[in-house]
Simulated assay, not measured.
Amino acid sequence: MRSLRIHPHLHDVFGEEQPLVFLLAILLFGIGVAMVFAFSAWPLLVSLSWWRAVLALVLVLDIAAGCVANFTPSTNRFYAARPRNRWIFIAIHVHLVAVALLLGVDLGAPIAVWAYTIAAAVTVNLLAGHAAQAFVGGLLLAIGLAGLPLLPDLIPAMAAASGLFMLKVLFSFAVDHYRHS
């Protein structure tokens, strides 16, 4: 499989090199999810100023694309070699709350999902190097996903974005998936 060297400014996103087919899958998934989100939230998006709608969709694209990118060996390897960067990545992920603010929807559920996701990701990241890390990450992800339907006032588009946010930060990113390879 042909790999491309990634520009150093994008190493935090894609690692140092990626197979072209992985890059295409990451981008197509991100764009596809953003399109589905736009279709689902269309009545809400058209009531916003254009820049708020576009920025919300870019953040949704980032959430979705990150779900896939963080599962690649290259991105995983990049962060496995840089534990400090992994902590910074977890700390800066406020995307879900930012999307809710941009859309002007109720903030209660997105803040609850964000807080749970960050707390769970910290827990999982503290287990770096332990055999139970993937299990605990999967368990905490399953608990979070099972709780989504219980959250009040969560529109379907935000429910989907919330699930993907949990997958991205808590499991796809916080777990070192290739530590034995």
Rank of each mutant, 00 (worst) to 15 (best):
L23N: 04
V124S: 05
D12M: 07
W51L: 11
A69E: 06
V36I: 15
D153F: 05
A131W: 11
L102N: 10
Q133N: 04
V21A: 15
N70G: 04
H93M: 10
A121I: 07
F22A: 15
L61M: 14
A41Q: 08
H180W: 14
F165L: 05
L170I: 02
N85E: 14
A65Y: 03
I26M: 09
A56Y: 09
M166N: 00
P110K: 09
L154E: 06
L151K: 10
F135L: 14
E16G: 08
H180T: 14
A119D: 04
A134E: 12
V60T: 02
A81S: 14
L102V: 10
I90H: 08
V58P: 02
P19W: 02
F89H: 15
R5I: 11
M1V: 12
A146L: 14
F37H: 11
L101N: 05
I88H: 05
V58D: 10
F173R: 07
N76Y: 01
D106H: 12
G30W: 05
I63A: 03
W87S: 11
A161W: 04
A81H: 12
P152V: 01
A53V: 06
A159M: 13
L164A: 03
F37I: 03
F29A: 11
F165N: 04
W114A: 07
A112S: 12
F165Q: 01
M1A: 15
N85M: 13
V60Q: 03
P83D: 10
N125Y: 01
Y178G: 03
L96P: 10
F173E: 07
L23K: 02
D106P: 00
F29M: 06
V58C: 13
W42N: 09
N85D: 14
D153N: 14
A112F: 11
A56W: 09
G147N: 12
G138F: 06
L148Q: 04
M166G: 02
M158P: 05
A119T: 11
H9C: 07
V46S: 12
L27N: 13
H130T: 11
V99N: 04
L44D: 10
C67W: 01
M166D: 00
A120F: 02
L164R: 02
L57F: 12
L28G: 08
A56F: 09
A69I: 07
H7P: 06
A128Q: 07
